[in-house]
Amino acid sequence: MSVDPRLFTLYTEAEVARIAADLGERRQIETRFNYVGAGAGHWADMAAWMLTVDGANRSLRETLALLDVLRPWLLATLDPRRQTRVVDLGPGDGTPAAALLGMLPAGTEYVGVDISAQLLAVAARNLAGRRFVPVRRDFESESLDDLVAPPGTQTVVLLTGGTLCNTADPAGTLRRVAGLMRPGDVLLCGVRLDHPESRTSFALAPGDDDLAPHEQVVLDLLGITPGGYVPERGYDPERRERYIRVRLTASVEVDFGAGRVVRIGRGERVRLWRYHHRSHGEMRALIAAAGLAATAEASSADGQFLLVGAVRGSGPGAGEAADLAVDARLAGEGARGDAGE
Results as ranks from 00 to 15, higher is better:
259 G>V: 12
255 D>I: 06
279 S>Q: 03
279 S>N: 04
242 R>N: 15
247 R>N: 08
256 F>L: 08
273 W>K: 05
270 V>N: 01
258 A>F: 08
281 G>H: 05
256 F>P: 08
259 G>A: 07
251 S>D: 03
255 D>E: 00
239 R>K: 15
255 D>L: 07
289 A>L: 01
278 R>L: 08
248 L>R: 06
240 R>P: 09
247 R>K: 14
266 R>V: 13
237 P>M: 11
261 V>R: 07
270 V>E: 01
260 R>D: 14
247 R>V: 15
276 H>Y: 09
262 V>T: 06
279 S>W: 00
272 L>W: 14
253 E>G: 08
254 V>S: 01
267 G>A: 11
289 A>W: 00
269 R>A: 14
277 H>N: 02
284 R>F: 01
268 E>W: 04
253 E>P: 04
280 H>I: 11
264 I>P: 06
279 S>K: 04
249 T>R: 13
276 H>D: 05
274 R>D: 15
265 G>M: 05
247 R>W: 12
263 R>N: 05
268 E>S: 13
252 V>N: 01
245 R>P: 14
246 V>W: 11
271 R>S: 15
282 E>N: 04
267 G>F: 12
244 I>N: 11
266 R>H: 09
278 R>Y: 10
281 G>N: 01
282 E>Y: 00
254 V>P: 03
249 T>F: 11
239 R>N: 12
262 V>D: 03
258 A>V: 06
253 E>W: 03
275 Y>W: 05
250 A>Y: 07
246 V>D: 09
277 H>P: 04
283 M>D: 02
274 R>W: 14
240 R>Q: 10
260 R>F: 10
284 R>E: 03
290 A>V: 03
286 L>H: 05
263 R>A: 11
238 E>W: 09
287 I>G: 00
274 R>E: 15
284 R>Q: 06
265 G>K: 05
247 R>I: 14
239 R>Q: 14
263 R>W: 09
286 L>R: 02
264 I>Q: 02
248 L>N: 07
268 E>I: 09
288 A>P: 00
275 Y>K: 01
271 R>T: 15
246 V>S: 13
243 Y>W: 13
285 A>D: 02
264 I>G: 04
263 R>S: 14
260 R>S: 12
251 S>A: 14
266 R>D: 12
237 P>N: 09
290 A>P: 00
276 H>W: 11
266 R>F: 01
286 L>P: 00
250 A>V: 12
286 L>E: 01
271 R>V: 15
269 R>T: 15
256 F>I: 11
241 E>W: 04
269 R>C: 15
250 A>G: 12
250 A>D: 10
254 V>M: 03
277 H>Y: 11
240 R>M: 00
240 R>I: 08
264 I>C: 04
253 E>F: 09
242 R>P: 10
288 A>D: 00
240 R>G: 02
290 A>I: 03
244 I>W: 10
289 A>V: 00
272 L>S: 06
279 S>Y: 03
266 R>K: 02
248 L>F: 11
257 G>N: 00
268 E>F: 06
265 G>I: 08
281 G>I: 05
259 G>W: 06
238 E>V: 15
262 V>L: 08
240 R>C: 05
252 V>C: 04
256 F>C: 04
257 G>C: 01
270 V>G: 00
